[in-house]
Simulated assay, not measured.
Amino acid sequence: MKTTLRTLAILTMGMLPALAMASHWSYEGEGSPEHWAEVSPENQTCKVGMNQSPIDIKNTLKAHINPLKSSYVDSPINIINNGHTIQAGFAASVKDVVTIDGVPFQLQQLHFHAPSENTLNGKHFAMEMHLVHKNAEGEIAVVAVMFETGTANSELAKLWQTMPAKADEKAELKQKIDVNKLLPEDLSHYRFSGSLTTPPCSEGVRWLVMKHPVTLSVQQLKQFTTAMHHGNNRPTQPLHGREIVE
């Protein structure tokens, strides 16, 4: 019996690296975006989905969509380098909300991609921030803000001051930040239906991409890209007949 258990333990230990490898995804090498559906059965939507994000924004439809109403009052409580992005998390009791077509969506977390994931007429921006929200029914809405290099961003500096430089490290924020100051003054935006831009690439996500960018300094961009060690943007995906409205 002891021999059998010992043999089973050895076999199980030998399988662990393979299992870990099977579920790993990345932005380069064998786990890069074109292979996401191969690294885990849960990621099939990344390959077969018809409403995938990000996209190239062009040929928009004028629809006079309702303005975005934001009410951001609380600060994130922690920041983590998860190896894929820098992400700031919010408490479950957070009061940060956006109202989309009369429906309130509560802010869950925000994170960054460089270069941008969504493009405008084929153009990448230096960086893109995703504010991920969820409503009472569990539906997801992502507000995306583009960054271009220029004047240093004071609110971003507060996040970057605490940014863990290594993967799988987290830290408590040292200063409160005002999420409103990470948004452009003009909240006009493009809207389309899409997906998460990371595995499992779940669809049914409402996307609101701000038309006007904000700025960050070259040094702030470099600090982020150094922490990531590589670009962390998924390539743009086919529209498959979807309409982009503004």
Rank of each mutant, 00 (worst) to 15 (best):
M1C: 09
M1F: 15
R6V: 14
T7F: 10
A9R: 13
I10R: 12
M13Y: 11
L16S: 09
P17G: 11
A20S: 15
A22C: 00
S26L: 01
E28S: 14
E28G: 05
G31F: 02
G31K: 03
S32W: 01
E34C: 00
H35T: 08
H35I: 00
H35G: 00
W36T: 07
W36I: 05
A37V: 05
V39K: 04
E42M: 14
N43P: 05
N43C: 05
N43A: 10
Q44S: 13
T45H: 03
V48Q: 12
G49R: 03
M50R: 13
N51R: 08
N51T: 12
Q52N: 11
Q52D: 03
Q52W: 01
P54S: 05
P54V: 04
P54M: 08
I57C: 08
N59E: 15
T60L: 02
L61H: 11
K62G: 01
K62V: 09
I65P: 06
I65A: 06
N66A: 15
K69H: 14
S70I: 02
S71G: 10
V73W: 00
I80W: 02
N81R: 06
G83C: 05
H84M: 14
T85G: 02
I86R: 05
G89A: 11
A92I: 08
S93N: 15
S93M: 07
V94I: 12
V94A: 15
K95W: 03
V98I: 15
I100C: 02
D101A: 15
G102Q: 12
V103E: 11
F105T: 08
Q108D: 11
F112I: 15
F112V: 12
A114S: 14
A114D: 05
S116Q: 05
E117A: 14
N118Y: 07
K123Y: 10
K123H: 12
K123F: 03
H124T: 14
F125L: 15
F125D: 11
A126I: 06
A126H: 08
M127R: 02
M127Q: 09
M129I: 12
L131A: 15
N135Q: 10
E137L: 12
A144M: 08
F147E: 08
F147Y: 13
T149Y: 02
G150M: 05
K158R: 13
K158F: 09
M163I: 01
D168F: 10
D168A: 06
E169H: 11
E172L: 10
L173I: 07
K176Y: 09
V179G: 04
V179M: 09
L182Q: 07
L187D: 07
Y190Q: 04
Y190S: 04
F192C: 05
G194C: 05
S195G: 06
T197D: 07
P199Y: 01
P200N: 09
C201H: 04
S202A: 14
E203W: 03
E203Y: 01
E203T: 14
G204F: 01
V205R: 00
V205W: 01
R206P: 00
W207I: 09
L208K: 05
V209A: 03
M210S: 14
H212A: 13
P213V: 06
T215C: 02
L216T: 09
L216V: 12
L216I: 14
V218I: 13
V218F: 04
Q219S: 14
Q219R: 09
L221Q: 10
K222N: 12
F224L: 12
T225V: 08
T226A: 09
M228K: 03
M228W: 05
H230C: 04
H230P: 00
H230M: 12
G231P: 04
Q237F: 02
Q237G: 07
L239D: 01
H240K: 10
